[in-house]
Amino acid sequence: MAEIRLEGVSYTYGRGTPFEAHAVKDLTLTIEEGKITGIIGHTGSGKSTLVEMLNGLIKPDFGRVLLDGEDIWADKKKLRSVRFRVGLVMQYPEYQLFDETVRADIAFGPHNMGLSEEETDERVREAARFAGVGFELLDKSPFELSGGQKRRAAVAGVMAMRPDVLVLDEPAAGLDPKGRASILSGIREYSEATGASVVIVSHSMEDMAAYCDRIAVLADGGLAMYGTREEIFARRDELRAIGLGVPLITDIAYELSSLGVPLGDDIYTVRGVAEALAKLIKGRER
């Protein structure tokens, strides 16, 4: 229910010092309404800077950030309400937990919004469900949880604000495969249930392929590619040149095709390959 448009944004760290570093250069990108957009790029390609621009934590040196067509920097007093609408989960968010109980910590955002106790409580439960935080954990101290549980609690803390745009910087970094899958599918459920747009920053081409409708590829602070995952992964040579590559399974399918096993070239998941192979084998049996 909200669209964010970045128009020619640029940002430089430490301007005017010997440590000056360009993070983002003249970048234009639209985060489409209701879609899950993946942002992928190398370390230092400007991903984290970009997401901090989306909710006004960083003010671009040049360019505009438009939320539903309105410049978020037009009125600084409204910035706080922008942050409620664009929920940002930062990298390693488990280190931001602070309150006595998980419940109180998840309720921090809704409290800041000035919601009533009942409303807050309902949102905490809803967010805990999406993020996969078991209700039995809600009354524990966040410092007693395991790493993965902490991560979920932190994600729930942002979901509880019920943002129109949910932005997550490396939400699955450092988790085991099961943890990755459950947190990412929770995010997708949130998007489907609320109609929210989602932005996921990741290193993992596999995750991008499995969860994202749109993919933006960043390189050297600029937008190198943007499109549907079919469009992006079809450009595998260019991706290689940037040093990113395509999902491993897409590579395997491609190599198989070049060896004369016609799998088709729009395969991005293990399941996809399995189905295509099954079809081929059945075709041969006949």
């Binding site: 901090e52 909710n55 934590l57 706080r80 942050r83 409620f84 929920g87 940002l88 989960v89 930062m90 968010p93 280190y95 931001q96 921090f108 955002g109 800041n112 919004m113 803390g157 942002v158 604000m161």
Partner: peptide
């Protein structure tokens, strides 16, 4: 810086 940003993102003032 990071923690402050994270809490600001949740509406801390």
């Amino acid at each position: 810086d990071k923690v402050m940003n994270a809490q600001k993102a949740r509406g801390a003032d």
